[in-house]
Computed example of a mutant assay.
Amino acid sequence: MYTRLLNHVARYIALDETAGQIFCNALELKTLRKHQYLLQEGDICKRDHFVIKGGLRQYEVDTEGRERIIHFGFEDWWITDRYSLLTQTPSVYNIEALEATEVLQINMDALETLYTEVPVLERYFHKVLQQAFAVGQKRVLLLQKSAEERYNAFLEDYGAIEQRLSQQHIAAYLGISRETLSRIRSQAAKKM
């Protein structure tokens, strides 16, 4: 159960067996059914989550009732509402399972304790946060591009998960209609 996470950690830092065990002991396994919420709008986010199996989407619903997906979380990805987690204010996002999903979760108090017990973990989470920040910046730039450029960038970054997502979810992530997405896909197929 912890192998996927420990392999992820090993990409960033060296963690000995004892430190790895301390880290694993601080985590809780949570299992979600398809369409079950990990977080709902209005709730205060209490934990960070590492996906070990399955997939989630993080989204908001605008004033006109349209969903805007800001992030996906699949195997080897961390997902949370970082703002709600850090400020302990109600979330504006929903995090919902797209399929049967298992996450390892850690609350902020346990994480702060881990930083003292296993200081090298602070470096790991620092690197993870840097990467998340860079992805967030890239996402802002993506939304300034044309619909076709957005879709091509999506394929470049997330082509491996495209088949696991509905057309509706891809369109909501790209900020375009399903009809526009269908047209772009059709035009791409004609070019092949």
Rank of each mutant, 00 (worst) to 15 (best):
L29W: 02
C24L: 11
V51S: 01
K46I: 14
L5P: 14
R11E: 04
S91D: 05
K138Y: 12
F125S: 12
V9M: 04
D109H: 11
D81N: 04
T116S: 07
A100Y: 04
R11N: 14
I69K: 02
Q130G: 14
Q88A: 10
L114I: 01
Y93H: 12
T113S: 10
I79C: 02
Y37D: 15
H49R: 09
Y12W: 11
N94Y: 13
Y124F: 10
A97T: 03
H8M: 15
G42R: 08
Q40S: 11
R4A: 12
R123Y: 09
H35V: 03
L38D: 02
C45L: 08
A97Q: 02
E28T: 09
R57D: 01
D43N: 14
P90I: 04
C45Q: 08
I52T: 05
V9I: 10
L111Y: 09
L6V: 15
Y37Q: 07
G54Y: 01
E122Q: 05
D43I: 04
V118Q: 00
L38C: 12
V51N: 09
R4D: 15
G54D: 00
Q137K: 12
V92R: 14
I69P: 00
L5Q: 07
I22L: 15
K46Y: 10
Q88N: 15
E112R: 09
H8N: 13
V135Q: 08
G42K: 07
F23V: 09
L27I: 10
T63C: 11
L6I: 11
L111R: 05
T80R: 02
E99N: 03
G73M: 01
L98G: 07
T87E: 03
T87F: 14
C24V: 15
I69Q: 01
E67C: 07
H71S: 03
L111D: 04
K34N: 05
L6T: 09
L114V: 00
N107A: 06
R82H: 12
H126N: 10
F133M: 10
E28D: 03
L29M: 15
E112L: 06
I13F: 05
N7T: 13
E122F: 09
Q137Y: 11
I106H: 06
T63F: 15
A97C: 04
Y93F: 14
D43T: 08
Q131H: 07
D16I: 10
E17K: 14
R139V: 09
L104Y: 00
V92N: 10
Y83V: 06
D81M: 02
I52M: 11
Y115N: 01
K34S: 02
E112N: 13
I52R: 11
W77M: 14
L6M: 10
E96R: 04
L27D: 02
L121N: 00
T18A: 06
Q40K: 13
D16S: 11
C45V: 11
T80D: 06
L39N: 15
I69F: 09
E28L: 14
A97S: 11
Y93A: 03
K138A: 08
T18K: 07
K34R: 06
